[in-house]
Design a protein around this nucleic acid. Structure first.
Length: 366
RNA sequence: GGAGGGGUGCCGGAGUGGACAAUCGGAGCAGACUGUAAAUCUGCCGCCUGAAGGCUACGUAGGUUCGAAUCCUACCCCCUCCA
């Protein structure tokens, strides 16, 4: 069973604001690139000519590239999905492009990533069961084509399970995708706005169908509390833009939960943002100084905050690993979650209300 | 001494008889962010209140009017120009 790992997002060939050296110091082992973004800019061939993504971004650790399936969802206005593939308009200049399962495999080969993903269709969370069903079927057919087209033996190809918030579709997709022989299996299409309980129940619908001897990758999950939940459900790999994005917006992870460094109470706080943390930021600067940098929109603020949040996550992963080895994971989980006070009840209910108010044809929540 | 311009909420700055507690910025305060079109977005922001509602407000003091930040009179202060 592999050690649980978190991959920071480096869509454009960079974990925003950090150098590879800093990532190493923080303890990051693998990063996530994005085929869609790198295809549009600078272009897959450009990166290939320059020696592949590792050399291009000066990162000698492993790289996992996402296929661009998520962008079909997040840039839906610019995309049109057919059985053949996706026709989309560039969000940069409006030019038209086409992505197919085969092209996506070729692109990722040219990028020379270590782990690559099949092209999947990731529908928005509030679409009808019929549409999600279509997406599940298409994702399966695309997975088949990706696998057929995948020749390189030194690149690991992962398949992706879809199914929205519908238990039967999750199961169906999991069975279908695992009928194909992939090195690892990902659970996609979650954490798109649905309530947490639903996210986890969908994970629980899926995992029983995944082979126990292959890594399981929960895509797009990356808050501290969610990583712990995921690990407790047998997930090995996580990625998310959350730790880094949230950092740039002033939200910092601490053992007592997420804290907004721009809050007035930090103006004069002489201690580091998280006294338990060993990151460069916490070793060197007071919360008051960080607060000031954020207020002034100084560029250093974003770097220091990103360093801290990523270090918080890598330390969390280390603690998780240790707890698993010692057989004390459940205790660790309970201790962590009780200390790391997640969103309060009021906020949770507001989120649920928001979710219930979303337009949909079939409501998966009873 | 004369001529002209101006004084609006924490700041800048609209408004120039009713739809104004007052556009819009900024600052301030709080919240969100999960396979990154994000150094982004949202809310609050005179006082009292959870809200309904009420109260006090546009330099000061009077006045005109059903009604004034907006019109009139006087005064105070600031800026520019001429002596």
């Amino acid at each position: 069973m592999p050690t649980p790992a978190f991959l920071p997002v480096a869509s454009q060939g960079t974990v925003k604001t950090l150098t590879p050296e800093e990532l190493k110091d923080i303890g990051i082992t693998m990063v996530l690139g994005n085929t869609y973004h790198l295809y549009l800019r600078p272009g897959i061939d450009t990166i290939e000519k320059l020696g592949g993504l590792h050399r291009y971004m000066a990162w000698d650790g492993p790289v996992l590239t996402d296929s661009g399936g998520y962008q079909i969802f997040s840039l839906a206005r610019l995309c049109q999905v057919t059985d053949d593939g996706v026709v989309f308009r560039s969000h940069i200049d409006g030019s038209e492009h086409r992505l197919t399962p085969e092209l996506v495999i070729e692109f990722q080969q040219k990028l020379d990533a270590d782990i690559i993903m099949t092209l999947d269709e990731c529908p928005a969370i509030n679409v009808s069961m019929t549409k999600v069903h279509e997406a599940v079927e298409r994702t399966y057919r695309w997975a088949e084509r990706c696998q057929k087209h995948h020749q390189s033996s030194d690149q690991l190809l992962f398949g992706i399970v879809q199914g929205g918030v519908f238990p039967e579709l999750r199961q169906h997709s999991a069975k279908a995708i695992t009928s194909l022989d992939f090195t690892g299996y990902a659970i996609g299409g979650l954490s798109l706005g649905e309530p947490k309980e639903l996210t986890w129940s969908m994970v629980d619908e899926t995992t029983p169908f995944l082979p126990t001897d292959r890594p399981r990758y929960l895509m797009g999950i990356g808050s501290p509390e969610d990583i712990i939940e995921g690990v407790s459900r047998g997930i090995d790999l996580f990625d998310s833009a959350l730790p880094t994005r949230v950092a740039r917006n002033g939200a910092l992870f601490t053992m007592q939960g997420r804290q907004n460094i721009r809050k007035a109470i930090y103006r004069t706080k002489e201690r580091p943002i998280d006294v338990d943390c060993d990151c460069y930021t916490c070793r060197t600067f007071t919360a008051a100084y960080l607060h000031h940098l954020f207020k002034c929109e100084e560029l250093l603020a974003y770097r220091l905050a990103t360093i801290h949040n990523l270090r918080f996550i890598t330390r969390l992963m280390q603690k998780i690993e240790k707890a698993i080895q010692q057989g004390t994971f459940t205790t660790f989980k309970n201790d962590f979650l009780s200390q790391y006070q997640v969103t309060d009840e009021e906020v949770r209910l507001a989120q649920k209300e928001k979710w219930l108010s979303l337009p949909r044809h079939h409501n998966a929540v009873s």
